[in-house]
C-alpha cells in the first residue's frame, strides 16, 4: 500500500462520511441523487463478491464491509426514512440509469480479464463505477444551487479518483508486473467526468462564494 492509495481510500471514506453527516444532521437528502447511490450499492455488491473467498488484509475486508454497508444504508434512508425521503428531488433525478447498467454489463461480458462469474462482475463494477456519478452531476446541474456538504461530498469523491490515478502511476513504476488496464482506463474516464465540477468548485472556493453550476 502506498501513500496515494491510502489517501484515495481515505478521501473515499470521508466522502461517504460527509454524505452520512449531511443526511443525519439536516435530515435531508436534497441535492443527492438516489440513482447514483443505487449505482454505488450495485458497484460494491458486484465488486466485493470475493469478500469471503479471497482474504487480502483486515484493512481490505473492513473497508469493503464499510462501503457495502454505508451505500445500502444511504439508499435505505433516501427511499424509506420517514423524514429524509420527503426531501428527495424526485422530479430532478430522472436520469435513465438502467441504460448505464445494461451498457456496462454488456461491456463486461465482452471485456474482462477472465470469463468467470466473479471476473465478469468485477469488470462490470469497474465500468459502472466510472459512470455512476453521472445522475448526481446531472441533478446538481439541474438544481443549480449546491449546498456546502453536497459540494464537499462530490469534491471528495473526485479527489479519491485523482489519488487512485497517482497510485496506479506509482505502482506501474515500482511493481514490474503491474498492468491493470481495465481499472486504469475506466479510472481515467471516471476522473475526467469530474473535471467540469472541479473547475467550478475551485472558482467558488477562490472567490469564497457559494458553489453554483451554470445551467
Amino acid at each position: 500500500m502506498n501513500i496515494f492509495r491510502l489517501a484515495g481510500d481515505m478521501t473515499h471514506l470521508i466522502s461517504v462520511l460527509v454524505l452520512l453527516l449531511k443526511i443525519y444532521a439536516t435530515k435531508s437528502c436534497s441535492g443527492i441523487s438516489l440513482k447514483t447511490q443505487e449505482l454505488y450499492a450495485m458497484v460494491f455488491l458486484a465488486r466485493y463478491l470475493d469478500l469471503f473467498s479471497d482474504f487480502i488484509s483486515l484493512y481490505n475486508t473492513v473497508m469493503k464491509l464499510v462501503f457495502i454497508g454505508s451505500s445500502l444504508a444511504i439508499v435505505w434512508c433516501m427511499r424509506y426514512h420517514r423524514v429524509v425521503r420527503r426531501s428527495y428531488d424526485r422530479e430532478l433525478d430522472t436520469f435513465r440509469y438502467w441504460i448505464l447498467v445494461g451498457a456496462c454489463f454488456t461491456l463486461a461480458l465482452v471485456l474482462h480479464e477472465k470469463f468467470s462469474f466473479q471476473e465478469v462482475f468485477w469488470a462490470f463494477s469497474i465500468y459502472l463505477e466510472a459512470v455512476a456519478i453521472l445522475p448526481q452531476l446531472v441533478l446538481l446541474q439541474r438544481s443549480g444551487n449546491v449546498d456546502n456538504l453536497t459540494g464537499q461530498y462530490v469534491f471528495f469523491l473526485g479527489a479519491y479518483r485523482a489519488f487512485y490515478i497517482l497510485n496506479w502511476i506509482y505502482r506501474y513504476l515500482t511493481e514490474p508486473r503491474f498492468t491493470r488496464w481495465i481499472s486504469c482506463v475506466s479510472g481515467l474516464v471516471q476522473t475526467a467526468l469530474y473535471a467540469d465540477f472541479f473547475y467550478y468548485y475551485f472558482i467558488s472556493w477562490k472567490n469564497n462564494a457559494k458553489l453554483q453550476l451554470p445551467a
Binding site: 481510500d9 468485477w122 487512485y164 491493470r180
Partner: peptide, 10 residues
C-alpha cells in the same frame, strides 16, 4: 505471487 491478478484495491 502474481501481483497483476490479485484484486487488492477497493
Amino acid at each position: 505471487r502474481e501481483p497483476s491478478n490479485v484484486k487488492d484495491e477497493l
